[in-house]
């Protein structure tokens, strides 16, 4: 069962996403800030991360940058899931290495489809390696 880490400082969203991902058949862990997200990724590496930008402490962009700077997480699928919908923020997220950038509000069906597609691509990539 694929592992998905949900990082968001809004407990309601975390609850919904956790429920949604579990329904789609994923093993879900959650974090409410950047530091605990980094700790969780290191302890129990997930197969995909849903990452918000506005987090207490280090921001989602910084978490993304730190993860991409480590060789073991260079290819970890990361989806930015955020209320920051400006074009420049989307560009920044993609430039820092996010695989996708989804703005809130979002369609749950599309989110699940996107997560599944990224996990499929990732597993294919691993098999080719």
């Amino acid at each position: 069962m694929a592992k998905v880490l949900v990082v968001d400082d809004e407990p309601n969203i975390v609850l919904s996403l956790e429920f949604l991902m579990q329904q789609a058949g994923f093993d879900v862990t959650t974090a409410l800030d950047g530091e605990s997200a980094m700790a969780l990724v290191t302890e129990n590496p997930p197969d995909l991360v849903l990452l918000d930008i506005s987090l207490p402490g280090i921001s989602g962009f910084e978490v993304l940058e730190q993860l991409r700077s480590q060789e073991s997480f260079k290819r970890l699928p990361i989806v930015m899931l955020t209320a920051h919908g400006r074009e420049v923020e989307r560009e920044k997220g993609l430039a820092l290495g996010a695989d996708d950038y989804i703005t809130k509000p979002f369609s749950t069906r599309q989110l699940v489809e996107k997560v599944q597609a990224l996990l499929n691509e990732s597993s294919q990539g691993l098999q080719e390696d």
């Binding site: 400006r86 703005t103 509000p105 369609s107």
Partner: peptide
């Protein structure tokens, strides 16, 4: 809610 999402994006 889906229509609202679309409209909010346009508004943004």
């Amino acid at each position: 809610s889906q229509a609202l999402s679309g409209l909010i994006s346009e508004l943004a």
